[in-house]
Structure formats: C-alpha cells, structure tokens
Design a protein around this nucleic acid. Structure first.
Length: 207
DNA sequence: AATTTGGTCAACCGCACCACG
DNA sequence: GCGTGGTGCGGTTGACCAAAT
C-alpha cells in the first residue's frame, strides 16, 4: 500500500559506525559532495541506509563541526532561542555555528533542562514553575518573573524575546566563521524555494 | 571488587514537507 | 491538481561510561 521504505533494512548495517565506514563516507563526499543520500550508500560501497549516512555526516563527520563543551554564552543563547522558537532544534542550531541540532537537542535534554529547573523555571514554557509544582513557592527572590515570557507557541508570530536580535535573513551571528554554512531561516519558516528566498544558490552546492 | 544507578550521546524511527513528473 | 520520491526534522531509544553504593 504505502510508499516503499527509505531503504532495504535487511541488507543494511545498523548501530555504531566503524572507522572504515566513516572513512568511506568522508572520502565519497569529498569527491562527490553532499546530496543524493538515497543512492550514496551504494555508490560509496556502504551497507547503510541513506538517512543513516546523512545523519552520520551531519552530526559527526562534517569538517566544520565544533566538538567539545558548550560555553556559557552558547548556553544562554540556546535558552533564549528555545524560549523564542520552541523545540525547533534545527533553527536553533542554525544560530550556533558548528553545532548540530542533534547535539543541541541532547544538550538541552541533559543539561539545560536541569539548569532551568534549578532556577525554578519551566523548561517548556520558560515561565516560573507554578505553585502546583511546589517549586515556585520556594523560588528565590532574585529570580524575576519574566512578564513577556510566553509558552513556546509558534502561532502568534510575536517575538517572545524582543531584545533578542535575530536577523532571520542572514547567517549565524558569528561572522568570523568562514567555514560555517550560511543559514537561511526562511527555509525553516516555510519559505523554502519561495520567491522571498534568496538563498537557493548558496543553500547547498550538491542539491 | 562487584553491582547498581544515573548521565550522556550516537543513532534510529516515523512523520512532514517539498520538488518533480 | 495529484501522486511519488527524496530529504530534513523532532522524538525516542539504547549502548556506553563514570560515579555511587
């Protein structure tokens, strides 16, 4: 009935990638560039699903990735972007050069959630925890109630952090990262391929 | 020293969107 | 306008490791 699966699961490897698989993928993309993920595994001699190859490349093998701990600045930026965008990890990642959506998502779930809870903030709404939670009652006095904080809904289109300067038409704020890909938020905002989008050429050379 | 528990992160899965014929 | 294929995204899982008991 429906569409065929993205790949033949019976003849594909799963689980952790080996060094050899990594090398094959890197070598292939160096020569042929990104794109055509569906046919890439066969062409590269990999027994992997195309999606798996893409994920491995995007989240781990890309040369412009910044590995290592998040800085306090990045922490705060993620928190503010999340309050504005919600769980739009790819959008948030677009504002953090060298970071991937998967990395940020993991970091959020493991570190920042706890950080916000310790501040007496609800990680979902970015509002102070309600008395029902039993935490707000004990909220320290120095934690101000943000009057403009609102649930992370995307429907109003109203910025929840007016002081956060998000230029939606340009790349990441860090201009000194020549290796990072330019980020076009119009793509994420549903304008992909639209007339308003001027990023098609720069988007990706392979696609 | 052995076992348990909790944290971290790479990877998978399913769905949604877009481009194209 | 519709159906299909390809790609990207967000949620979830599970393996691995370190700290605690």
């Amino acid at each position: 009935m429906g569409r065929s699966p993205c790949c033949e699961k019976e003849h594909t490897n799963k689980g952790a990638w080996t060094k050899e698989e990594d090398q094959r993928l890197i070598a292939y993309i160096r020569v042929n560039g990104e794109g055509c993920w569906r046919s890439l595994p066969k062409a590269a001699g990999l027994l992997r699903c195309g999606k798996s190859c893409r994920l491995r490349w995007m989240n781990y093998l890309r040369p412009d990735l910044k590995r290592g701990n998040f800085t306090d600045d990045e922490d705060e930026l993620i928190i503010r972007l999340h309050s504005l965008l919600g769980n739009k990890w790819s959008l948030i990642a677009g504002q953090l050069p060298g970071r991937t959506d998967n990395e940020i998502k993991n970091y959020w779930n493991t570190h920042i959630k706890r950080k916000l809870l310790s501040r007496g903030m609800d990680p979902h709404t970015h509002r102070p925890l309600t008395p029902v939670d039993g935490a707000a009652a004990s909220r320290p006095a120095h934690i101000a109630v943000p009057a403009r904080a609102a649930p992370p809904t995307m429907s109003t289109g109203e910025p929840r952090c007016p002081d956060l300067n998000l230029d939606l038409s340009v790349g990441p704020p860090a201009a000194d990262t020549p290796t990072s890909h330019p980020v076009c938020l119009c793509r994420h905002l549903g304008l992909r391929g639209g007339a308003a989008c001027s990023c098609r050429q720069a988007d990706s050379p392979g696609s």
